[in-house]
């Protein structure tokens, strides 16, 4: 479903709005309402973050949301139940660290598929790090979204693009997840480098936190990922988070 969504967006020359939420945050009930609300507000893809005790790629906002979700009893299994409960029509991408997936065992990918998940992104499983487990995911029922960083050399970008599906997630700048006030000056060059070796759609995230930034990113990439800003607002109010997604949608469509 993720692949089809990305292809039809490309065919329609529309930019994808990818929204990240942490499963079970601000609490399990509101988390379901949040996913449903942002799907209705125009998100094309929703990344569902699996809370993890040691999120080394995440800044304070997503760390805090993971901690809240864990304290509310959230696990990978409950994340899948939550995904099924949302019944949304936009593709859901599980955004996880490797250890919860390993602990869940080999059937977890099919379970995720059966729960309505269509893609998987693993923060700490870079291309080539573990061929056996990468093959397990790559041959499974989910699209396998891989990450590219600004530090990634072009020849490695090519390798990453050939080992992923759905889209490639381009990290816009050095550092962990979190809001930034501007778009990295190096971003256009990095997008062009990646595009020269990658046929998959490119979605850019890390630091995108306002409608203006989303528009700027949409002008150079196939999609925009918004995470920490949305999580921070959702902690205060689901309604405000939904309104924020609506404003992002308008900004991207105007790009």
């Amino acid at each position: 479903m993720l692949n089809e969504t990305m292809s039809s967006l490309r065919a329609a020359k529309r930019r994808a709005l990818v929204c990240y939420v942490t499963a079970g945050h601000p609490d399990p009930a509101r988390s379901v309402a949040l996913v449903q609300g942002i799907a209705a507000a125009g998100a094309d893809v929703i990344e569902l973050g699996v809370p993890f005790s040691d999120p080394v790629a995440d800044g304070p906002v997503i760390q805090g949301s993971s901690q809240m979700a864990l304290e509310a009893g959230m696990t990978l299994q409950k994340t899948l139940e939550l995904a099924a409960a949302t019944r949304v029509r936009v593709p859901l991408v599980l955004f996880s660290y490797l250890n919860p997936l390993l602990a869940a065992g080999p059937n977890v990918l099919q379970q995720a598929k059966d729960s309505g998940i269509s893609g998987l992104l693993v923060t700490d499983l870079p291309v080539g790090a573990d061929p056996e487990r990468e093959a397990w995911i790559g041959k499974g029922p989910l699209s396998f979204v891989r990450l590219v960083a600004p530090t990634t050399p072009t020849n490695r970008m090519k390798q990453i693009a050939s080992h992923g599906s759905g889209f490639v997630y381009l990290i816009s700048r050095l550092g962990v997840t979190g809001e930034r006030s501007d778009v990295s000056v190096d971003l256009p060059g990095t997008v062009e480098r990646l595009r020269s070796v990658c046929a998959l759609p490119i979605c850019v995230g890390f630091g995108v936190s306002s409608a203006a930034q989303a528009r700027a990113v949409a002008n150079m990439a196939d999609g925009v990922v918004v995470g920490s800003a949305l999580v921070r607002i959702a902690e205060r109010s689901v309604d405000e988070a939904v309104a924020f997604v609506r404003s992002l949608r308008s900004a991207i469509d105007a790009a």
Binding site: A57, L98, D124, P126, V127, D130, L147, A149, T152, P153
Partner: peptide, 12 residues
């Protein structure tokens, strides 16, 4: 062992 890290760190 291995290198289970965010992509950003692989070149480093």
């Amino acid at each position: 062992g291995g290198q289970y890290v965010p992509e950003t760190l692989i070149p480093a």
